[in-house]
């Protein structure tokens, strides 16, 4: 009992202190700062893009992992989990090392006029890299919960594989996709170490918090931090409520 109290206090005490410390005026002032608005906006926007990319590319992959048995599947699953294990700055370094002109992939990007270093593309790339495993694992669990037999019955009734996905699998698994996107976004917004290496500018919120902390100290970094978690909390709460209401209706 005592230990759970300690743990809860350990988590809540610093957060509460950080939220309560900045004065109202300072908070209001920060909210009007266009740099802050831009940074938080970029964080959310880029994280949403990462979640969108995960949705498009991760969903078929999660379905494959959930439904098919094949040699090397365990290995493939470990590969998917790799971004969770790798230290964050290393991810930044790794992404940069294929984005430069001494790598064929970097050459293609340069040919296409796509810059990774110091660009939104770079930020989205990092966020997708770190968020994708969370999306795939959540959605795979969701697909696992859809009985294969319901899909089989759908096929036997005349529905093609695609029609079966949209009429049976998706309606039963979309909630796990929402959850997967929330988790992917949460992970993406919180990323600092890899982003700071790939793109110091344009500035995402965590980089701005770090910059204000090193330049002006704790007092000036706190309001940005509070606004960032406030915006994130509202966003995730909305998504969560939305998916739960549908669940209650079903």
């Amino acid at each position: 009992m005592a230990s759970s109290g300690v743990i809860v206090a350990f988590i809540l005490l610093p957060l509460l202190q950080m939220v309560l410390e900045p004065s109202a005026e300072l908070m209001a002032e920060t909210a009007k700062d266009p740099d802050v608005i831009r940074a938080i906006g970029l964080s959310i926007w880029a994280a949403a893009a990462a979640a969108g990319i995960s949705l498009v590319f991760g969903t078929p992959f999660a379905y494959l992992l959930s439904r098919k048995r094949f040699a090397g599947k365990k290995l493939l699953e470990s590969v998917v989990d790799l971004p969770i294990m790798i230290p964050h700055p290393v991810i930044g370094i790794a992404l940069l090392s294929i984005a430069g002109k001494n790598h064929w992939f970097g050459e293609i990007l340069i040919e296409a006029g796509i810059r990774v270093m110091g660009s939104t593309v770079g930020i989205v790339a990092v966020m997708t890299f770190v968020g994708l495993p969370f999306y795939i694992n959540a959605v795979k669990t969701g697909f696992d919960a859809v009985p294969v037999r319901t899909e089989n019955v759908s096929r036997s009734l005349g529905a093609s594989a695609t029609a079966t996905f949209f009429r049976v699998t998706f309606p039963l698994a979309w909630r796990s996709m929402v959850v997967g996107m929330i988790m992917c976004m949460a992970r993406a917004i919180s990323e600092f170490g890899a982003i700071v290496i790939v793109a110091y500018h344009p500035m995402v919120a965590p980089v701005m918090i770090y910059e204000r902390f090193t330049a002006y100290g704790l007092k000036y970094s706190q309001p940005v931090a509070v606004w960032l978690i406030a915006v994130c909390l509202v966003l995730f709460l909305l998504l969560r409520v939305f998916s739960m209401r549908e669940e209650a209706a079903a």
């Binding site: 037999r149 319901t150 096929r155 093609s160």
Partner: peptide, 17 residues
Amino acid sequence: PPEHRRIGIVYQDSALF
């Protein structure tokens, strides 16, 4: 593929949607 076989299938656990 199953959708072109003109079959009906009933499983023990019903497998309703």
